[in-house]
Design a protein around this nucleic acid. Structure first.
Length: 231
DNA sequence: ACCCAGGTGGCCC
DNA sequence: GGGCCACATGGG
């Protein structure tokens, strides 16, 4: 939790997830896969203008009328299909995302995971930010943080991706308060820190010294008396 | 002209 | 059950 505090002091409250409704979280979670949020915002804006952030309308939509709206978010054909598939599932089985989320965590999670286009990170994002479920979201930045501190050496490879995901998730969940606000802010703080300092080339651990001084990961390492060297 | 982004699923051996 | 690869746009 010292890590959380250090990140919080540095970046402050993030107010995640940036969305007006739970269903918008679902849409955003799918669109943001392997894509920058600024591109996702454009697609969300397009969908919102046409009213497609409303479940019934989206689930009755045709792929061809969605393609162009989703295009700025990249992978637009694939994401359109996934969006429609998920919307149709929720609409026909529950009528609303809130109704679907109003069930035990594990049941919703397994159901989400069975849908095409929803893997562990997307499922947990929906549970944590659209619902009120205590599920910590793990992403690429979380792995990098674990590796670089080093907190939980986990590697960067794609092998055993699911095992690795749940290993990291369990580690965080076992070591943090069971509070929704902390779950939400912590992941958001890791993303913010990652966007600035944890690119694939570890800027914070190399190049100029002023960046090293300003990098919270360096502070964290200093706090834990871990010697950080070039890698 | 590269490289990368808040992943996921499918196919091949 | 791994190890690759397609998916695609926009910004640094």
């Amino acid at each position: 939790m010292q890590i959380y505090n250090l990140l919080f002091e540095r970046f402050g409250k993030r107010y995640w997830w940036p969305a007006e409704t739970p269903f918008e979280v679902v849409v955003g979670a799918i669109l943001t896969q392997q894509t920058t949020w600024t591109n996702v915002e454009k697609a969300i804006r397009n969908l919102k203008e046409k009213g497609f952030l409303e479940l019934e309308l989206l689930s009755n939509a045709n792929e061809n009328e969605i393609y162009e709206l989703v295009r700025p978010a990249g992978y637009y054909r694939q994401k359109t299909k996934r969006l429609l598939g998920v919307a149709r599932y929720i609409y026909t089985n529950y009528g609303s995302i809130e109704h679907m989320l109003n069930q035990p965590t594990d049941k919703v999670r397994n159901e989400l995971l069975s849908l095409n286009g929803i893997g562990p990170e997307t499922a947990d994002s929906i549970l944590c930010y659209a619902g009120n479920h205590l599920k910590f979201v793990v992403d690429a930045y979380t792995y990098r943080l674990c590796n670089r501190i080093p907190l939980l050496q986990i590697g960067d490879g794609k092998e055993h991706a699911w095992d690795r995901y749940h290993k990291v998730q369990r580690y965080f969940e076992e070591n943090m308060p069971k509070e929704l606000e902390i779950y939400r802010e912590y992941h958001a703080l890791i993303v913010e820190c990652g966007k600035r300092f944890c690119k694939t080339k570890p800027k914070c651990l190399s190049e100029n010294n002023s960046e090293i001084e300003r990098c919270p990961i360096s502070e964290i390492c200093r706090y834990y008396d871990i010697f950080v060297h070039e890698r």
